[in-house]
Amino acid sequence: MQIDGFTVIAQIINFLILLWLLKRFLYGPITGAMTARQQKIAAALDDARQKVEQAEAEARKYQTQRAELDAQHDKWLEQARQEIKTRREEWLKQARREIDAQREEWLMAWQREQTENQHTLQREATRRLTEAVRHALRELADADLERRMLEPLLTQLRTLDMAERTALAQAAQGGCTINTAFPLDIALQQHCQAALSELLGDGITFTFHHDPRMACGITLEMPGHRLAWTLDSYLDGFGETLAKALNSPVPATSNSDERR
């Protein structure tokens, strides 16, 4: 066991050289790589942490926006419901108004038709009644209907007071028109002229006129005066009675209670 001085010195130098070489080729690169990797991992972790924070912020932002959208959606939905309800009510009111108008129009048309039918029925009934009365009077009294109709008119003239008869006589001087529902024969016309001349005076110009629109009767027209006896008044009452008998009352023009 001995120590060689040269070997000791050489080994010290060798060790220092080896130390420098390993520091140059081993420790430096390895520790550098480890440090770089640590920094890289730290940077990646920091980046991941930032991304997580950004993602959380984005998530919170989206949640807020979604809540706002939900609230907006509910608001819009409620508005749409209200608008639909309002429009539905408006359309229902408009439809009811149109239905009421059409119903009113239909009722008026129906009323007009009923009135027309009533008038037609009234005229027909009057005509038939007149025919029947005429036939009955001819058979029962053995006289013409026109002659019988002239008698009440002459009776009215006779029952007038003197002042009225004088006024009529003066008016008759301007001409007297005799209107009848049926044409008068010559004999009856002469009888009528004679009776009137006896009551109103001579020199009166008589004009006989046939008016088919009259139901039945006779009218005496002078300037400013008119004297008549017709069956129209009687037939009017007969028509009302007949209408009631036929159960056809005149419908009301408007009745709001019947809308529903």
Binding site: T7, A10, Q11, N14, I17, L18, L21, L22, F25, L26, P29, I30, G32, A33, A36, R37, K40
Partner: peptide, 25 residues
């Protein structure tokens, strides 16, 4: 002793140099 020391030194340095020539980060 010196020769084997140099051999060890050469082996270690060459090995370290070869491995750390392309350090991967």
């Amino acid at each position: 002793t010196l020769v084997f020391t140099w051999l060890i030194m050469a082996l270690l340095v060459l090995l370290a140099r070869r491995i750390t020539r392309r350090v991967i980060h």
